[in-house]
Amino acid sequence: MKKAKKKYIKYFPILGCISTGLIYSAIGIIAILSLLRLKDGGASKNSLLAYVRDWPGGVLIIWAILLGMLCYIVWRIYESFRDPYHYGNGWKGLARRTGIGLSSFADALIAYSALVVLMGSANFSEDGSAQQQREMTASMLDFGWGKWLVVGLGLLIAVTAAVQLFYGITRGYRERLDIVKFSGKKKATIFFLGFTGYVARGVILGIIGYFFIKSGILKDSDYVVNTDKAFNFIGDHIGKIPFAIVACGIICYGLFMFALGITYDLDNDPSDPNFHPKKG
Score class of each variant (00 low, 15 high):
residue 52 V to T: 13
residue 163 V to I: 15
residue 238 I to Y: 13
residue 279 K to A: 03
residue 257 M to W: 06
residue 12 F to T: 03
residue 160 T to M: 08
residue 275 F to A: 05
residue 73 I to T: 07
residue 261 G to C: 04
residue 51 Y to F: 14
residue 133 Q to T: 06
residue 88 G to D: 07
residue 89 N to V: 00
residue 196 T to L: 11
residue 5 K to F: 13
residue 233 F to E: 08
residue 51 Y to D: 07
residue 258 F to I: 11
residue 6 K to Y: 12
residue 238 I to G: 03
residue 129 S to V: 03
residue 117 V to Y: 06
residue 43 A to W: 10
residue 70 L to P: 01
residue 1 M to C: 09
residue 71 C to R: 01
residue 4 A to C: 13
residue 85 Y to T: 04
residue 246 V to M: 11
residue 208 I to H: 00
residue 33 L to A: 12
residue 134 R to I: 15
residue 236 D to V: 07
residue 272 D to M: 05
residue 232 N to D: 12
residue 162 A to F: 14
residue 64 A to L: 15
residue 17 C to Y: 12
residue 249 G to E: 06
residue 265 D to G: 01
residue 18 I to D: 01
residue 80 S to K: 02
residue 199 V to N: 11
residue 57 G to P: 02
residue 213 I to L: 03
residue 235 G to P: 06
residue 245 I to R: 06
residue 128 G to L: 04
residue 19 S to L: 05
residue 211 F to M: 00
residue 165 L to C: 15
residue 80 S to N: 07
residue 259 A to I: 06
residue 69 M to W: 04
residue 11 Y to G: 02
residue 228 D to M: 03
residue 152 G to L: 03
residue 76 R to W: 00
residue 157 I to C: 14
residue 93 G to L: 09
residue 109 L to P: 07
residue 234 I to M: 09
residue 164 Q to D: 09
residue 83 D to R: 00
residue 210 Y to V: 02
residue 262 I to D: 03
residue 129 S to F: 11
residue 36 L to W: 11
residue 161 A to H: 08
residue 225 V to Y: 10
residue 10 K to M: 06
residue 193 L to K: 06
residue 235 G to N: 14
residue 182 F to W: 05
residue 250 I to A: 04
residue 140 M to A: 10
residue 93 G to M: 05
residue 35 L to F: 02
residue 19 S to I: 08
residue 7 K to D: 13
residue 107 D to E: 15
residue 9 I to M: 01
residue 191 F to P: 10
residue 251 I to S: 03
residue 199 V to I: 15
residue 96 R to L: 11
residue 118 L to Y: 00
residue 175 E to L: 07
residue 73 I to M: 13
residue 136 M to C: 02
residue 201 R to S: 12
residue 113 S to M: 12
residue 145 W to N: 02
residue 208 I to T: 07
residue 14 I to R: 07
residue 14 I to H: 00
residue 204 I to L: 05
residue 135 E to T: 08
residue 278 K to S: 10
residue 29 I to R: 11
residue 32 I to W: 12
residue 142 D to W: 15
residue 93 G to S: 09
residue 115 L to M: 12
residue 24 Y to L: 14
residue 176 R to A: 12
residue 142 D to V: 11
residue 44 S to W: 14
residue 121 S to N: 13
residue 18 I to S: 07
residue 87 Y to R: 11
residue 266 L to N: 02
residue 129 S to G: 02
residue 79 E to W: 14
residue 48 L to V: 04
residue 122 A to H: 10
residue 16 G to L: 05
residue 57 G to Y: 03
residue 44 S to D: 15
residue 262 I to E: 10
residue 116 V to P: 04
residue 148 W to T: 02
residue 170 T to W: 09
residue 123 N to C: 10
residue 258 F to S: 05
residue 78 Y to R: 01
residue 220 D to P: 02
